[in-house]
Write a protein that binds this DNA or RNA. Sequence first.
DNA 1: TTGAAAGCGTTACCAG
DNA 2: CTGGTAACGCTTTCAA
Lengths: 355, 355
Amino acid sequence: MSDRTRPTLATVAARAEVAPSTASLVFSGSERVAPATRDRVLAAAAELGYAGPDPVARSLRSRRSGVVGAVIGERLTYAFSDPVAVQLLDGVTEVLSPLGVGLLLLPGDADRHGPTLAQLAHVPLDAVVYATCGPEDDPALEHLRRREVPIVAVDGPGGDDVVLVGVPDRRGTAELTRHLADLGHRRVAVVALPLRLDGTRGPVTAERRARVHFRDVRERALGVEDVLGPVPLWETATNAVEEGARAGRVLLDVSAADRPTAVVAQSDILAAGVLRAAESLGLRVPEDVSVAGFDGVDLPWLPPVRLTTVVQPTTEKGRVVGRAVTELLAGRRPADAVLDVHLSVGTTTGPAPRA
Amino acid sequence: MSDRTRPTLATVAARAEVAPSTASLVFSGSERVAPATRDRVLAAAAELGYAGPDPVARSLRSRRSGVVGAVIGERLTYAFSDPVAVQLLDGVTEVLSPLGVGLLLLPGDADRHGPTLAQLAHVPLDAVVYATCGPEDDPALEHLRRREVPIVAVDGPGGDDVVLVGVPDRRGTAELTRHLADLGHRRVAVVALPLRLDGTRGPVTAERRARVHFRDVRERALGVEDVLGPVPLWETATNAVEEGARAGRVLLDVSAADRPTAVVAQSDILAAGVLRAAESLGLRVPEDVSVAGFDGVDLPWLPPVRLTTVVQPTTEKGRVVGRAVTELLAGRRPADAVLDVHLSVGTTTGPAPRA
DNA sequence: TTGAAAGCGTTACCAG
DNA sequence: CTGGTAACGCTTTCAA
């Protein structure tokens, strides 16, 4: 090993006695290179221990870095304890990885909902995916717009230059609620996902509800009310089992006269918490109270119960996002996409108990 | 908006009537710029809608891309259903994010243990973290070496040019095993994490054991044997609750004469599965069988049981990795680090039942 | 099929 | 404190 400095394409070209441009052609896999020349270049590269064209220099010329940002609102720990977020990103990488495009994590921290500008500004980005939160009033958005970085948002509120991928949250929840109504339920409470990421928890006032930050949360609440009219909302601080349990313990307080006969949680994770609360309060499900969720994720520790829920094709949603990114990278403007959901009736909903 | 083309630093400099190098100084936050000049440049930038220096061009010059790769062996869904992996990466980002460095996910897919070269080769990388698997015989390794990308490996086998961060897996497991031995346990079975990522599951033969791919798996097995001598190992296909349950159902088969009185699982996730299996087999824990894990992760759905386990400081491990990366980026060569673990005795281990 | 030359947008270095 | 100039390592015309 006598090399003083890391070899570059020029070094390789010189050693192979071809022009740099020809060597470049070889590494870009072009057909228009004589096999003999190609072999010579490859041999030179091997001898020099050349690792291939520097991605950064390549990016500068080709205006493509192979990096797509993933905005995941919160700390990794929170975002990735949400199976929906993970499945979604899994779908995205499934499509993007084979193209040599990687996902760059852009988490926020305890206080912030998104990445700081300092984080964004220094990092190459061919596109950005808002994976778990809409880009609504995100200061980073303006920066990305300036840089002309295309954006795909999941369940977000969108905007003209943002490609949207979502599901019919409202219709799905309405369908679920109709199922409950058909079973005789009239007093239904909703355990809501965070309306904003500020740690608030408790009953939702009209003012707070007017300032809901996330489209899907709003829509899922409306879906219930489409069927039953106004219902009480209980907001959780994060999408976590323990948060659902806290909510459940309050809502299902056995001493309350107007205890709901059914609880609609806005995620399966929260629903799992409500189930736990019911259990700890000595309530039978579904005899004393029905519980339903949203997402249709696999909670391996939930059985023997099967949760009634609205199933959304989360991984497929991720793939659709991945394809949208692919289109964007190719300079095309894909249409927004709305995937479908369906009701899955499990063992956690049943006839409303007689008053 | 009359701009035909995205503004560059040169455009901004021209408009502010300064040299490009001066404008560059402004954006790099240098002190050696007259406030008046700075304001003029900033004003010009604002007027032109300049988003700041192009990260790619900047990277080319400064030889730093702000991107650190995270190799996570498997599909996102598998890797991120492991709380240990998530906490670890959380710790890493906690240190790296404030530095404007982002984590690029480098998952494998169903068959592969690591990213393909096509994925790696096109992407800028200041460093790489092997987060959930050692770089042992990884073909990507040679590529990274050529590119002179520094590597930090967690619990990995290492190599001269790889910085290692780990915990005393062997000693920790030995301590746990001594606790069991003190309780009178002699017939102990181990539910092992995957020895290699090839979907194998079942009793571990000597040949297979000789080819174990992951250092921590080997060490944790040895820790048990340090105390009790050779014990049967049951390999799982992935680190998942259901896998632990499958293993548990076989190992705890009530009809077997030599049913173990204690099961040591190599992760808390697997231990949770074993607990489930015990329950479904009608065995009481710890009266009929003791169960222990490794990691000390918070499984919010596990209570009321408290798992006996070896607690490792996973998030701190991530921070240490982050700091090691920081050092490496600064051109220094940090020392390997071994963090500490401790035994946490819960309610799942007790005296061995009388034969 | 190959080569020459011109940048891509920035920062580093050295003068002034 | 500011300006000029030369890279950084590659790809992309355009010619030959």
